[in-house]
């Protein structure tokens, strides 16, 4: 593993190396290095499986983080590859040519975060959200509460009480 890491650091500018339990290692590489690195790992280092792809919205830094989790079934090791892209319309290269099911993860990220993956099959079709008419809901500027208030009718018979007001009514109504 150490030698593998040395190769990744030297060849692909990996940084922020974080070793986790069970042989998992996470690190960050610059966006242009992601595809060459993943290709290399799949072709030459035995990382044949893509476990998942996911994204995190770092709205404060105006960035999305994309994470790829790869697995080498022979050595039972996982690599978590992180990269950062701009939040405003900057897409990411698709890896559906390497793993067909990557298209599904990419379609989900397009729907949930609005991250584009040009060329990825069916990437613009709805994934979970049929008839969605708002901004992608996992973007942090999406106001979940406001959306629920506007979209769903309150169920009849619901009532709530503010604790402080309720306590005043019960304990000191005349003060």
């Amino acid at each position: 593993m150490e030698q593998l890491l040395d190769r990744i650091i030297a060849g692909f500018e990996a940084a922020d190396i974080e070793k986790r339990k069970d042989g998992q290692v996470f690190f960050t590489v610059p966006k242009p290095k992601v595809l060459p690195l993943i290709n290399h790992l799949k072709m030459f280092e035995g990382f044949r499986n893509l476990i998942l792809m996911t994204a995190v919205d770092w709205i404060e830094d105006n960035q999305f983080q994309i994470t790829y989790l790869l697995n080498n079934p022979d050595t039972k090791t996982d690599l978590g590859i992180r990269t950062f892209i701009g939040r405003d319309g900057e897409g990411m290269d698709s890896i559906h040519e390497l793993w067909g099911h990557a298209a599904t993860f990419q379609r989900e990220m397009k729907e949930m975060f609005g991250i584009g993956f040009p060329g990825s099959p069916r990437v613009d079709e709805p994934f979970l959200l049929e008839g969605w008419d708002d901004i992608p809901p996992m973007r942090r500027e999406f106001d979940t509460k406001k959306y629920s208030e506007e979209t769903y009718f309150p169920r009849p018979g619901r009532e709530t009480h503010d604790p402080a007001t309720y306590m005043k009514q019960k304990l000191y109504p005349n003060d």
């Binding site: 979940t144 509460k145 629920s148 208030e149 769903y152 169920r155 619901r158 009532e159 709530t160 009480h161 503010d162 604790p163 402080a164 309720y166 306590m167 019960k170 304990l171």
Partner: peptide
């Protein structure tokens, strides 16, 4: 975030110092 919880009075629980006497009710819709 989903406004799934309401605070409702519950029989047998008194409102007193430190306890509003309300308890959360969850709407699984």
């Amino acid at each position: 975030e989903n406004e799934a919880i309401d605070l409702v009075p519950v029989q047998g629980i008194e409102t007193r110092d430190g306890d509003s006497g309300l308890r959360p009710r969850v709407d699984y819709g």
